[in-house]
Design a protein around this nucleic acid. Structure first.
Length: 913
DNA sequence: GAGTTTGAAACT
DNA sequence: CAGTTTCAAACTC
């Protein structure tokens, strides 16, 4: 290394970077150094502006639209040049003349970028998602260098991306090539530094980097490090971002990156947008990080695009997909992701992001095609293989969270919200703080993915559908065949349809509102984005016949939390969920996957017409029993008027998430427990509790995916009142429900509960995620689950409101609904109630009304009227009242006394009875 | 991997 | 609404 030169150059560079950062982030370090540098380089101001552009640019279709940024970019570019030479070491002098040499630098950049990209690509390939995104981009911009030139910002981004990727991924090769790239990297770093300036603390970078990328740096990194040191800025951020991006596929990655700043992959398109949004918001938290992410992402995209794989090669993953479509899809996904992410992430994050996302979404919205997010599938998957689906979700979440936490300290929040898994993942990450986050992320992903092969999943999820069917169909029929197994990791379903063209409910994908993916072995599949119209039409037809056709079959009572925990523990908590329509098994005795209840890990309920039911998750008989018991309790409690108090409590928002847990623990004592214990398996005991006490919880859990987020908002209403919260959640969750609910509500819990629930499901939630976001992304635990699921769909659903794919999520107007949801709170409540009914109906219904089948009894009405009135009074604002009525009763028992005392007393009383 | 079984979805 | 057929997954060998 040219120590002297390098140092000087580095200093200058760092100074410039610092200045830039300063401009961006006012408070950033103003060391004499930076000042000096600032004085030296007039460019600084430009950079700052530039940065801003970059961020902004990110928002918009990233790479593709470069022109706008040119001016600022160029300036940056110049800076880069400076850095570039510096980085190279030999060319320190260039730094000063960087502007002059800009052209050369660009060329070099291009080369380096290409080399880097190639390297990166390799690494990226590791992270399929990243690659995919990148590839897509390439298609758009064939010439990296040119692109850079045209858009300095992009170039920077690309460079940064490359650097980041290299660092993060440790694709050593990339780094080597990066010498030339180093300049780029430096530029990026400078940006990072700027960001870091504020985040100096966060930057763990160096150590990590060094450790991570011993190879990489030979020159560039070392220089970079020096620069960073000089600037006292850590490079890590960039690295982090890279890492995240890679892991996260397109959407998630980008978003995550922004948030976490760690995402390696950075999906060119979406990520950028995300970053921009995030950046703006995040800026508050950590401007530097966000910016970096954004820039990096862009850069990556561009670099990827430009660099090595520009056009065709990139196609590898998505190649089949049309670039435009892919981009659009990605965008959509990103939007979705954002939504989902937000929920996953902490509320704070979510709140901010959600807002941003919403803003972004528009962009994404551009494309309705997307879609596919399979709320249904998700829902189904959760129950089915909660573990499987969750993992994926958790992964994303975790990743996102992780990055965020590190950067934003969101981790804690995440950990809280997230289930054990998240925590674990975080822990793992945390464990090796020194190591680059990217590493962690990488490892993390690897670990996570391995089981199910993240790449495929991710692909599906992210760009999923797009790529999916097209070229990917590598999956052997077996895979497809094994939905269950397949579902494991992915939430995605695989079908093997031959005659239905995947346009009937026979097709799991279609039924789940998801487009068939490449992993599907279907023949003559029309369930693809390409045939959106056909799909939508078909869906409409089916829905016309059966409005609930696409509604989730299973209403979950169990909270995701439970599921997650159970999974972690190896326990399977079953679910308090139940099959809406019930099964009709005659030979399988509900102990095989032929039985939808069993398949969903749900016990059979009154709705089932099965013969010789032996469902380990809960027998039909038991269900009835528990139902009765519950109903009785509820009635008693209701009578007591506990509900009223509880409602008040809820209003206070005192009880919230915690309660559910507590309730669970508490609830056990309740008769239901006993019953359950009888029931079948120990697990049941839990289940039952979940159903009863949890009813509220269960609601959460069920809703969680969608509603959970809402729960947070609902919190205000009063989480404590499980019912209330559940209601609110439900509301939020089911945008559709809201609509339906409203109608139903008016009707007061008309017997349609099932229908309602179904509606919620059916009606495309628009996007649970959006709802979640809007509602409140707060619910932590739920958020996780929710997030995971939502993420998948959100994008697809959103874009194509019409797209039935998302119907559950009700992609249609998630955002609007959100707002609506609140207003419609009442409606939502109804919807919630419906859901709840489905979920809790048993209990609640029983409690409130006869144990018999929900529909027949229309339990809602019974209870609802009285309690509702109360609830309404209390919570005039929200419609929760209706549901609250039911739930209140149930919940009231546990929640009240919160818990122990009351429960005990109650239990005792009950037992006595 | 092929064939059978099963139950939901679709049809009449 | 009930019965039958069709379908694809789940299961078995």
């Amino acid at each position: 290394m040219d120590s002297p030169k390098a140092t000087t150059t580095t200093n200058t560079i760092s100074a410039t970077a610092a200045t830039v950062s300063l401009s961006d982030s006012p408070p950033v370090q103003e060391s004499p150094f930076s000042n000096y540098i600032s004085n030296l380089s007039p460019i600084k101001p430009v950079n700052t502006a530039h940065v801003a552009h970059g961020l902004l640019g990110i928002n918009s279709p990233p790479l593709v639209f470069k022109s706008p940024h040119t001016a600022s970019d160029r300036q940056i570019y110049l800076l880069r040049r400076f850095q570039y030479p510096q980085i190279s070491g030999a060319e320190t002098s260039k730094i000063d003349d960087g502007s002059k040499k800009a052209v050369d630098g660009l060329e070099d950049m291009g080369k380096s970028s290409t080399s880097l990209t190639s390297n990166l690509i390799v690494d990226a390939q590791k992270s399929d998602n990243v690659n995919n995104s990148e590839q897509d981009q390439p298609g758009s911009s064939s010439g990296c260098v040119d692109d850079y030139l045209s858009d300095p910002v992009d170039a920077d981004c690309a460079n940064s991306v490359n650097l980041v990727n290299s660092n993060v991924k440790k694709s050593d090769d990339a780094l080597q090539a990066s010498e030339s790239n180093l300049t780029d990297l430096k530029i990026v770093e400078s940006d990072d530094i700027n960001d870091k300036g504020t985040k100096g603390e966060v930057s763990q970078a160096r150590p990590e980097q060094d450790g991570e990328d011993p190879k990489e740096q030979p020159t560039s990194e070392t220089k970079m490090e020096k620069i960073k040191e000089d600037g006292s800025i850590a490079k890590q951020p960039s690295h982090v971002c890279l890492n995240f991006g890679s892991d996260l596929l397109v959407d998630h990655a980008s978003r995550q990156q922004c948030y976490t700043s760690g995402a390696q992959v950075a999906h060119p398109h979406e990520p950028i947008q995300l970053k921009t949004y995030n950046g703006s918001e995040v800026s508050q938290l950590q401007r530097g990080m966000s910016r970096r992410c954004l820039q990096f992402e862009q850069a990556q995209q561009e670099t990827i695009m430009d660099g090595t794989y520009p056009p065709t090669p990139a196609i590898n993953l998505f190649g089949s997909i049309s670039p435009a479509s892919s981009t659009e899809l990605e965008i959509l996904d990103s939007s979705q992701v954002e939504l989902t992410i937000s929920p996953y992430k902490e509320q704070t994050m979510t709140a901010i992001f959600s807002a941003d996302i919403s803003g972004k979404s528009p962009l994404a919205v551009s494309k309705p095609s997307g879609i596919g997010l399979h709320l249904n599938s998700i829902v189904n998957t959760l129950p089915m293989g909660s573990s499987a689906s969750k993992p994926t979700m958790s992964h994303h979440l975790v990743e996102n969270k992780i990055s965020c936490s590190k950067l934003l300290n969101l981790v804690e929040r995440v950990s809280i919200t997230a289930g054990d898994r998240v925590l674990q993942t975080k822990a793992s990450l945390a464990t090796s703080p020194a190591t680059s986050e990217s590493f962690h992320n990488m490892e993390f992903f690897n670990n996570l993915q391995p089981p199910e092969q993240v790449t495929p999943h991710n692909k599906r999820r992210f760009s999923s559908e797009h790529a999916g069917n097209f070229e990917w169909s590598p999956s052997s029929p077996k895979k497809k065949r094994k939905k269950a197994s397949s579902t494991v990791g992915d939430d995605c379903k695989r079908c093997n349809c031959r005659k239905t063209k995947c346009l009937k409910l026979y097709c799991d994908c279609f039924a789940a509102g998801i487009y068939c993916a490449g992993t599907c072995a279907c023949q003559g599949c029309f369930n693809r984005p390409e045939y959106d119209e056909t799909v939508l039409e078909t869906r409409q037809q089916i829905e016309s016949r059966n409005p609930l056709a696409f509604a989730p079959k299973i209403v979950q009572h169990v909270t995701e939390f439970q599921a997650i925990d159970a999974e972690d523990l190896g326990l399977f908590t079953p679910y308090s969920g139940k099959h809406k329509t019930g099964c009709n098994c005659k030979k399988s005795m509900c102990v095989k996957k032929y039985c939808e209840c069993y398949q969903a890990n749900v016990g059979c309920s009154n709705a089932c017409r099965c013969e010789g039911c032996r469902n380990i998750h809960g027998r039909k008989e038991e269900y009835a029993m528990t139902h009765e018991i519950v109903s009785k309790r509820a009635n008693e409690e209701n009578l007591e008027g506990m509900a009223g108090e509880k409602l008040r409590m809820v209003a206070n928002n005192k009880f919230l998430h915690a309660e559910p847990y507590d309730l669970r623990s508490l609830t056990p004592p309740t008769p239901s427990f006993e019953y359950l214990s009888h029931g079948k398996d120990t697990p049941k005991s839990r289940l039952l509790p979940g159903r009863y006490v949890l009813s509220s919880e269960s609601d959460f859990s069920m809703l969680p995916s969608y509603a959970k987020s809402s729960s947070s908002p609902s919190n205000s209403h009063g989480n404590d009142m499980l019912p209330n919260t559940s209601k609110t959640l439900d509301m939020a969750i089911l945008g559709q429900e809201l609509d339906y609910n409203s109608t139903e509500i008016t009707g007061q819990f008309s017997p349609q509960f099932d229908g309602l629930a179904d509606f919620s499901d059916q009606t495309p939630l628009l996007n649970p995620s959006p709802i979640m976001m809007a509602s409140s992304a707060s619910s932590k635990t739920q958020d996780k689950a929710n997030v995971s699921q939502p993420q998948v769909y959100p994008g697809s659903a959103r874009l194509s409101p019409g797209s039935a794919l998302c119907w559950r999520s009700s992609p249609i107007t998630p955002m609007t609904r959100l707002g609506e949801t609140k207003n419609q709170a009442q409606d939502s409540d109804c919807g919630l109630c419906d859901i709840l009914e489905d979920d809790t109906p048993e209990i609640l219904k029983d409690s409130s009304a006869p144990v018999t089948s929900v529909k027949s009894s229309s339990p809602n009405k019974k209870r609802v009227s009285p309690p509702q009135s109360h609830t309404r009074e209390f919570q005039s604002s929200s419609s929760a009242g209706l549901k609250s009525g039911r739930k209140f009763i149930l919940k009231s028992v546990p929640s009240f006394p919160p818990l122990t005392p009351c429960l005990d007393s109650k239990d005792c009383t009950r037992k006595k009875c």
